[in-house]
Design a protein around this nucleic acid. Structure first.
Lengths: 216, 216, 216, 216
DNA sequence: AATGAATGAGGGTTCATTCAT
DNA sequence: CATGAATGAACCCTCATTCAT
């Protein structure tokens, strides 16, 4: 019985490993080339498997990408949840969120999402109920909203700025990489420092000015 | 001779008109569907001409899009130059720039650029010397840099924030529309008000804090 | 204007010729190999055109075959109508129908239909309203029913046999060729004579026996 | 030794049982969907075994189907032999044959054959010596020929109709089901009654008319 | 022997590009 | 020049067959 068990789980383990390899390769190529320039052939080639094999794991190119996105969003969600639950001020929470978004694996996620989000077919996948991508995205947004509104309550953020505008500004930070090539002409930049400053701009931008409010 | 001349320029005028029509149609569809979902057939159909005719004006789909981008950047460049040359404070200049970018025809341009910028082929076109897209983009950036550095000189903007970071934050505002569907769940927003607040966030984000006001 | 006209009709004529060539090639191969063994590549190759060209005339393989069937049914319908309208006894009408069905181009039609009718996808096409295949088939059946019932009225055919059974027996004659290879072991048979005898069997099979009609 | 023997025959028995299950499943699906719409995956799934296992029993899809056909023909042959050997008049024999063909399991066989007979690959299998399908089919035909010719000898059937034509008419009865959907527009029909009438048409069609009985 | 993941040839379809009219 | 039919490379996907476990 146990042998059977271990036999089965070996198979299952290999299967999942292979699936991860496919997702990884797909992610790489999608980041390099975008959805339409990525062919199933190339993904298969990069993994070193036959094209048909991909279809044992994902029923279509769209579903493969949907799985990739789902996987990334879920990971993001977990991390965001951790931040939200932590004992920190709203500013610190945002700070930490931005830090993760810009530095760690996050920026890749942001680019992935935004690089994929163009395709019309893919938008359809987004909206389709079954993947729950939209729902997860909504949850992710809700967490951010919570932080921002908490910040307004405790007087950290400007109440005269709508939460929506803050959200926009916040998420816009994620799409930046897109312009790198143009803005920087190719030369690499110390992201760490760049992100620090962007965070500063954003946080100061939404922070409540403590001026001598008595005057006002 | 003159007849010939006028004949030719009539021809030439018609030709250019047609070219404009093609560019206009291409722009519309590209904004709706993105690069890959836009087919030459559809562009031709929308203009009301034969597919082959497009190839009399543009040697390839890539070149057509490159022309479209060039045209948009040039227009942007002209407007930016006007702003730069105007007698305004750096803050006011940025303000006006943002206003144009978010409200007027600019936002369309931003979306166009960002919607197209995904494709690898297109990136290649960007880099190719002959279109001068990169050069114009550089010029456009330089103008912005000028404003920002002028702002630092005159004490309006934070000197501790690198101009590069400011640039990033500035251009990030252009990519926002992308997330509309997800962030807003479809409901329309008064863009005018939204943009006003975003501008506020950005400008306050980079504005020099008057703290050591005793000195000043 | 006339030049334009002739120009257009030339194009149109060529287009229709090409379409006929495609239909003809498709018909040949379908008869040889059946629906599934017939590839668009092969059809194109037989016509001597590129595969893509077929798709300028027919939006899909299914539609191509549907067009082929429609075309054949319509032709059959026209001929059947002529027979029905002729001044003949019901027996003679059936006779002529069978003669056409078995000898002329008809048998090819019968085989085509029956060779195609297997595919599940194709059945779907049959049922779809837009081609009107089912409707035409129904009309064709109705004509036959008319003849059979007229025959019963005038005392030529057995009233104790349901029209439906007669219809079955009638149409079954069309599917025969299918067994040729097996029944005949490959050797060719004088179809003319064979059909004459089959007609005899069928007609005698449904003919009213004149037996002691006085009693009845 | 005997243990070994019995061990082996147990194995062998299980093997044959499994083979029967595969054939049964294949038959079902083939009848539902036809040769090309039937996948090895689906057959395996219906049996509840792995796809590879099928290949331990049959070297290919073609061979599986060939085995199925062989099995059906052999069964038919046995039943036909019984009828031929029975003490009945030729008419009665035909009658019984038709009855079996239309009602019992036979009609399924007829449909199976005709549904499969389309594919080119399968035709090839038919012709290949090794399965002996053609030979058995020939034998089956020969039995029918015997009955028909016996009927002619004893004056039951028309001598002026070639045996071959009778054969055609006889076998054509088997392919009818094909047109059901079209001929009946979906409504179910009491097959028993339908078959009775078809048998009547056929038998009366080939029966010798007793008219000039005075001469004889 | 049984399994089922892997294979890869082959099919239908699309679409940027070409070219005869 | 304008036209739009023709082209054919490339794509996504299927499925009979193989083979390591």
């Amino acid at each position: 019985m146990q042998t059977m068990q271990s036999h089965c789980s070996l198979r299952e383990k290999q299967r999942q490993e292979r699936e991860q390899l496919i997702l990884k390769a797909a992610e790489e190529i999608l980041l390099e080339k975008g959805y339409y320039e990525t062919s199933m052939d190339e993904i298969a080639a990069r993994v070193g498997i036959a094209k048909g094999t991909i279809y044992h794991h994902f029923p279509s190119k769209e579903e493969l990408v949907a799985a990739l996105i789902t996987w990334n969003i879920e990971a993001a969600l977990r991390e965001v949840e951790a931040v939200v639950a932590a004992d920190l001020t709203p500013s610190e929470k945002l700070d930490r969120l931005i830090e993760h978004v810009f530095t760690g694996i996050y920026s890749k996620r942001a680019r992935l999402l935004s690089s994929i989000y163009n395709g019309v077919d893919i938008k359809r996948v987004f909206q389709e109920k079954e993947h729950g991508i939209k729902e997860k995205m909504d949850t992710l947004c809700r967490y951010t909203v919570e932080i921002l509104e908490e910040g307004k309550r405790v007087g950290e953020f400007e109440t005269s700025i709508s939460t929506q505008a803050m959200m926009y500004a916040f998420f816009s930070l994620f799409s930046i990489r897109r312009y790198d090539a143009i803005l920087l002409g190719g030369k690499e930049v110390p992201h760490r420092e760049l992100f620090r400053q962007l965070r500063h701009i954003f946080l100061q931008g939404i922070t409540r000015k403590q001026e001598p409010s008595d005057k006002e």
